[in-house]
Design a binder for these strands. Structure first.
Lengths: 209, 209
DNA sequence: TAGATTGTTAATCGATTAACAATC
DNA sequence: TAGATTGTTAATCGATTAACAATC
């Protein structure tokens, strides 16, 4: 295994490769060349070959890439066969929708608990996952050792909660709060999702030109 | 007005600048230097000055940038004072959450209608917006001329619907369906959001090192 | 074998960073 | 005026593209 550091642009393209290869497999396509895949994905063939070769030579000269095999390899790289424990904090509109809509399984994750400070929600469940009161977070984490927390809480509540969650052993945050979470600890990974930024970008591009 | 083309990385940073400047204004900070802003945002001062100078010189030598003024300028560039008409298709879990959770107003948009093919949903409403049957989409678009459609529908339904929506005058798609929407028409802008990709990226980064 | 397509190196392009003169 | 910080040009860095030898 090469210990080479993978650049961010490459990392961000991996899930997309994985998705497109899934579609191809679904369409019963057995082999594909970098040229064809590039055409489909709106990339260049060179780039695709460069990307794959960050991890090793998965193709065969004169043939291309075996779709099923390549998909499995990239799946392995992305760790989709793992069962990373995930908890979700904040069972409001967005929290519930994410719990129900995102296929955690497919992403190598397993949503094992939802927490909310509203006592009225405790005892109910969403997407088959029980909603628990915040008081039980500590003991739950000690018992089940989730490594990722999805944050669907208001901005104000987030920063302090994050420190606590890190002390509970959380090593990754998928942050939907309306602020940019920044953590000093280099072992903690943060993925900020700003839907508003995405919509603004769309609006800007429409008014350009 | 410079007709210079703005690069994608710069465009993607604009909403973030806008957000951070909003926070600063909230904290009653009147002026800020590129150096201080860089520190807060995890960028370099050079980059910030380069970015702003794509649009014009908004700062003042020896002083820095006036927070409120700069925020308004960037807001103007992003078009947050516009009222771009938006419709949302698919009032499932995710559709409802987006309708309720995303602040369209703040993004220069106005969510004016939700459509769903399920006749049971017709007549109900989410986030104060009425849910209407797909049959009324045509006449609604002719009357209200929305320019953006949010797609919260299954992959299978999406591609054909998109063609129809374009014929109804939709020029921008905010696509949450599980597929990459690609449109040939250069006047149509697409912003694909893949929450699964984002989660996979987080998981990958956690297992790296 | 001939044709196709990879893996990989070299060339190009674009974005970020550094430097500094202009100026408030 | 002196100090600070911008706007802007030049240097660097990294990512993408092009080219081609290796090889299935």
């Amino acid at each position: 295994m090469s210990k080479q550091v993978i650049s961010t642009p490459v990392i961000r393209r991996l899930p997309r490769y994985y998705r497109f290869l899934g579609d191809l497999e679904h369409e019963k396509v057995e082999r594909i060349s970098s040229r064809e895949l590039a055409l489909r994905m709106g990339l260049s063939a060179s780039q695709i070959r460069q990307d794959f070769n960050c991890f090793g030579g998965f193709g065969q000269q004169g043939y291309g890439y075996h779709v099923k095999e390549l998909r499995e390899i990239i799946g392995g790289i992305l760790g989709v066969r793992e069962k990373t424990g995930v908890i979700l904090i904040g069972a409001g509109n967005l929290g519930k929708a994410i719990a129900a809509h995102v296929d955690f399984q497919k992403c190598g994750c397993s949503l094992i608990g939802i927490f909310d400070s509203d006592p009225l929600l405790a005892g109910t469940s969403t997407a088959g996952i029980p909603i628990m009161p915040m008081e039980t977070l500590d003991s739950f984490c000690r018992q089940h050792k989730p490594s990722v927390a999805v944050l669907c809480i208001p901005k104000e509540a987030a920063q302090t909660l994050v420190e606590i969650l890190i002390s509970y052993g959380i090593g990754g945050f998928w942050n939907f709060s309306h602020f940019d979470l920044r953590v000093n600890n280099p072992d903690v990974i943060v993925e900020n999702v700003h839907l508003g930024d995405s919509l603004m970008t769309l609006a800007f591009c429409m008014h350009q030109e």
